[in-house]
Write a protein that binds this DNA or RNA. Structure first.
Lengths: 240, 240
DNA sequence: TTATCGTCCACCGTTAACAGTAGACGAAAG
DNA sequence: CTTTCGTCTACTGTTAACGGTGGACGATAA
């Protein structure tokens, strides 16, 4: 069983990383932008130390790149979203497969409670609450799997995924089917057959991926990706 | 094609991270050890900034944990080695599967050149050189796959894997079969069938994993894991 | 015009000092 | 004896200043 660290007040570095991450994902700060410690420190009225911390964190999440003179924004292209979800699929399928043997009754109950929260959020059309419950649900899947390295990778990229999900919450979509998808994942874990479970989760994540590439594409202002005629288009209505 | 960053002199933080990482993997610094910025700064005659950088890096590699008062060494248990290799297997199989379509002639040639270096190192029984070539070979597999997130995860954990490999280089083993295993991976990429390629790579990594758990076990002083009668025992003679 | 060389500067890496905080711990009260 | 409260301290987070470095750039020579 993987234990959780107690919550502490976020440092300035963490706060700044969060602000910059959102700005990068939303392209308020565009790809190629030169980020300089001193400049950001002046702009946000902090010293360079927390700026360093923030930029290091964003670097390890693949959002910025350190070069000789400063950091440069890489941002998130459609390619990046695809890559990120391919990574996520690779590791999350392993985690849920392990969950078949390892998930405890308490964890399964916690999963069902989160699904209930999702349904309640869907009732209220509270997409932001839904997204947060969604993230907690998937984190629980990793916890059930009991592989700490998989958990660590999830934790590393979770903030990026969360930022991406924020791009999709403004859309007026019925969230109930997605909530039920999550319940179905739990059912399949309990049923104990890895093959349909893997198929279901892959479909689930591919739907989420399509939705996000759609949102990023719309944000970029592209018309280059037309999803309305592909099988993913239906799945794209599903969250996470 | 994934581009490489130019090489810079390592900062004090990076150097310290490397030293501490080795000490942790080798259990010179044992699990549970309390690591304090001030104490390490005095011991290594640097200021606290680089110590912070080092500990942050080790934290993201899962070797230490930050709690309220300082960092604590988690270390690498047998469980951790298994988890790490399960992660690696999950992502590396995806990378090589993608390499079937995406590997360039130049990359394949580079792979063969690295295998030649491995054979030369095996000729000289130069295990450390072999291990380094081994790491470069696998990094090239990720590059061939062209998924930047997979590359990033590999880069994140590569130093830990390298430290682990150092535990195994003192053993007097004929390295030629392992070199040829790598050539075979390239052949299978060129042959273009994902299924035998996946099977081969999984076997390859499971061999490496067994070898490492064997080395960690011996280092811990355990007698709790007897590998001599399992199918992995033969594969454990293979590196990487 | 091109190549070379010296200077400058745009940054980051590092250091030392200060400030804040959350438990630990001891003393006092019930 | 147990609980509460106040103080202390062990750390980290942050700030400001200094030092180093590697290209950029301008001047000079061929």
């Amino acid at each position: 069983m993987v234990t959780k660290k107690p919550t502490r007040a976020p440092s300035l570095g963490e706060q700044l990383a969060s602000v910059l991450r959102d700005q990068i994902v939303r392209r308020v700060i565009g790809p190629g932008t030169h980020l300089v410690e001193d400049t950001l420190a002046a702009e946000y009225d902090v010293s360079r130390g927390p700026v360093r911390d923030a930029l290091r964190q964003l670097e390890s999440q693949g959002l910025v790149e350190s070069r000789r003179r400063g950091f440069y924004v890489l941002g998130l292209t459609l390619r990046d979203v695809d890559d990120l979800y391919e990574l996520r699929e690779a590791i999350e399928v392993v985690a849920v497969t392990r969950a078949i043997e390892l998930a405890s009754p308490a964890q399964l109950a916690a999963g069902r409670a989160i699904v209930d929260e999702m349904i309640a959020a869907a009732d209220r059309s509270a997409a932001t609450d839904f997204a947060q419950a969604d993230l907690r649900f998937h984190e629980l899947l990793y916890d059930m799997g009991g592989n700490r390295k998989l958990v660590d990778v999830w934790q590393e990229y979770k903030p990026v995924i969360a930022s991406l999900m924020q791009l999709t919450v403004e859309e007026d979509v019925d969230l109930h089917p997605s909530a039920l998808d999550h319940a179905r994942l739990l059912d399949l874990i309990v049923a104990g057959d890895a093959t349909p479970l893997g198929v279901e989760l892959r479909g689930h994540l591919r739907g989420a991926r399509s939705r996000m590439t759609h949102a990023v594409d719309a944000m970029i202002g592209g018309g280059t990706t037309d999803l309305t005629s592909t099988p993913d288009a239906v799945a794209a209505e599903r969250v996470s």
